[in-house]
Design a protein around this nucleic acid. Structure first.
Ligand SMILES: [Mn+2]
Ligand SMILES: [Mn+2]
Ligand SMILES: [Zn+2]
Ligand SMILES: [Zn+2]
Lengths: 153, 153
DNA sequence: ACTCAATTGCGACTCATTCGCAAGAAATAT
DNA sequence: ATATTTCTTGCGAATGAGTCGCAATTGAGT
């Protein structure tokens, strides 16, 4: 099992990352507006998995006057474009992250809410096998481990 | 990988199944009302993973006059009692099933919406290992494979 | 039958998300 | 540069699953 990126994302050149995202939009004929640029920048910088109101607040710090509706609309657009991913963890509202090249799953500390990323190739392979056995191929999947620190409970 | 129950659930004595459920409630000091009995019966019979409005409609076929609020309230109660499980599949509203003794995960045919149950012990073991490596124990987890029939796509 | 807390139905309410639409940018044509 | 077309935005209203408050009802011990 490898830790996909996470802590190291800050190391990447953020500017480069944003350009990759905006290019994807331009290629799809979608205008890169002030508000979309701000939201993309926030997403590229994010180490966590922020929800819409949080993204709204961060984006407004960069470019004041963005409405929450626009944040929601932009997030839907970006998701459709495959630029970001939406996660619906247990009872919470949707959280987002840029669609990195490498797939990963999530572990959520039920005490603190902390989200930890991971990917296990053996599990990924087994999932494909299970689907194949029944004549299916996987379109996408989600695996979430809700966990608690062991020991002093 | 084994198919946990599914098609065979009809084979079980439904009456016996319902009694097991109602007993769990009585033991917890929760009244088994007309409406709760109906909802439990519907759940015990269900081969699929119905949502609240569907359960409402089925329960009303047995005992007319049950309100949707009561269905929602009862479902929450039953979930808290550990008698049923709630599933939140991709964009849909919550779906429910009795909490059988054996754990399983779900595969959703993205074309038809069909839900297939499965359980893979190797994956379950790997999940526990991954959590343990980071000093966590799993409280619960969810794994959903969104799939499509292979071939003629 | 009597008592009383638990439960119900109803309608009002919440909260995340979506919509409608008129006003405001961007791209495009003249 | 100006006009025209098309896409986006902000605002506030609407949605829809699920929850809540409350008066009326009922389950289950006495
Ligand atoms: Mn992630
Ligand atoms: Mn199931
Ligand atoms: Zn995975
Ligand atoms: Zn599992």
């Amino acid at each position: 099992m490898r830790a996909p990126h996470g802590q190291n994302r800050r190391m990447n050149d953020t500017r480069e990352h944003i350009e990759k995202l905006t290019d994807a939009l331009r290629r799809a004929g979608i205008r890169v507006t002030r508000q979309r640029a701000a939201i993309l920048e926030v997403l590229a910088d994010a180490q966590d998995h922020p929800d819409a109101p949080e993204l709204h607040s961060r984006a407004n710090a960069i470019a004041p006057g963005i409405s929450l509706s626009t944040v929601y609309r932009t997030l839907s657009t970006l998701e459709t474009q495959g630029v970001i991913q939406r996660h619906q963890f247990d009872g919470a509202s949707a959280r987002f992250e840029p669609a990195e090249t490498d797939h990963h799953d999530h572990m959520i500390d039920v005490e603190t809410g902390k989200v930890i990323e991971f990917c296990n190739d053996r599990i990924e392979k087994l999932q494909a096998e299970i689907a194949a056995e029944l004549g299916y191929e996987i379109v996408h999947h989600r695996m979430e481990l809700y966990v608690r620190k062991t020991g002093q409970g």
